[in-house]
Amino acid sequence: MIVSQDRGRYPGRLIAVEGLDGSGKSTQLYLLKRWLEMKGLKVFFTEWNSSLLIKKATSKGKKRQLLTPTTFSLIHCTDFADRYERQILPLLKAGYLVLCDRYIYTAFARDAVRGCSPDWLHNLYGFACHPDITLFFNTSLQIALGRILGGRPQLKYHEAGMDLGLSSDPYESFRIFQGKIYEEYLAMKDRFRFIEIDGADPIEAQQQKVRELIAAEIDLAHYRSRTIV
């Protein structure tokens, strides 16, 4: 098994975005991806909780509320492992720029809030390498909540953290849950060298900053696709 934090051995580069729901991270990663693609670079995008293989089990577990903090954590880790083993790692080896919408830190934050032991979680994800660049979209809790709750959406049970029994009102539960996750992010940001982006800035200004950062950190020309289309 590849238990490696040593990213240097692979020619590819791994870029992850983290942040609360409503922090704008997905929008920014999408714009980054478009920019990289249009420059003709080898880019691969993957998002949290999207392995086709595991999806059925995850949605069954969520729908029937079969999941406990431990199985919730394990099934999301299984999902991540499937994407890691079959896509992220091979593509890094193939010299791709791999973009991840949420990475292991999402699990560290959420599962810790659900009561899983941090040591156990860090070991669980020990097979995964840390990203070259982790962008943390730091938005005040108020702004993030406002963006999500503004439209009074139908919140899903686990999304609202209802399984934690924080409140019987889904919106109130979501607020408390997101607040706890935000604290976990703040506690992690230095340890895992997150680069902070102010998620309250205009979209264009954030994207400008993201592109500058990426161009400064990575020799982009090196990742040009050599395949003639």
Partner: peptide, 14 residues
């Protein structure tokens, strides 16, 4: 994959 299978079994066990 190897890690995925390990974790799948661990989920079943848990």
């Amino acid at each position: 994959g190897e890690i995925t299978r390990s974790l799948f079994y661990a989920t079943d066990f848990a």
